[in-house]
Simulated assay, not measured.
Amino acid sequence: MRGRLIAAAGVAAALAASVALAAQSPPSQAPAQPQAPPPLDPVAILKDACAMCHGVDFIAEHRKDRDDWDFTVRRMIDKGADLNPDEAAALIDYLAKTYPKPAAASAGGAHGVQ
């Protein structure tokens, strides 16, 4: 009888130890995939970085090709516009698509800086 009692106590201790160990181990999960940053909103960038000084109507009056918008945005950054490289690229793409230089006028070459 004493042998059974010792065996039962050993089984109980082993069971308690395995439960305690399982409680300490984090559940195995697949490693978290890094999330892509949210897409940049060029309209919000325009309003935040450009419209502080110019107003959107002023910007909309100017029509430039992509190179001229690139030049203008870089010039504004040099003057203090707070844009990181990703924001600048998104803004340049947006301006070039939204306010393009008319096809007949794009044959020029000068930077249409306003």
Rank of each mutant, 00 (worst) to 15 (best):
L5D: 05
P85N: 14
K101M: 10
Q24T: 15
A14Y: 04
Q114W: 08
A20M: 12
Q33D: 04
M1V: 03
A22E: 13
S106G: 01
A16E: 13
R75C: 00
D86R: 15
L40P: 09
P26M: 12
A44V: 11
K64C: 11
A89F: 09
E61G: 14
A17T: 15
K97C: 01
I77W: 01
P31C: 03
I59G: 11
K101G: 00
G55T: 07
G112W: 03
L46A: 12
A88Q: 15
D67K: 12
A90C: 10
H54P: 05
M52S: 10
A30C: 00
A14F: 11
A96P: 07
R2G: 00
R66Y: 07
A12N: 08
Q114H: 08
G80S: 04
L40F: 04
P38Y: 08
C50R: 00
A32Y: 03
A49G: 02
S28C: 03
P26V: 07
R63P: 01
V56P: 09
I92F: 04
D67W: 11
G109S: 10
G3Y: 04
D93T: 14
P34A: 09
A110Q: 13
R4E: 12
P26S: 10
P42H: 10
D78S: 15
P85V: 13
G112P: 01
V56Q: 13
P37K: 06
E61V: 12
H54K: 03
V19M: 15
P31G: 06
Y99C: 01
N84Q: 09
C53P: 04
G55R: 02
S25W: 11
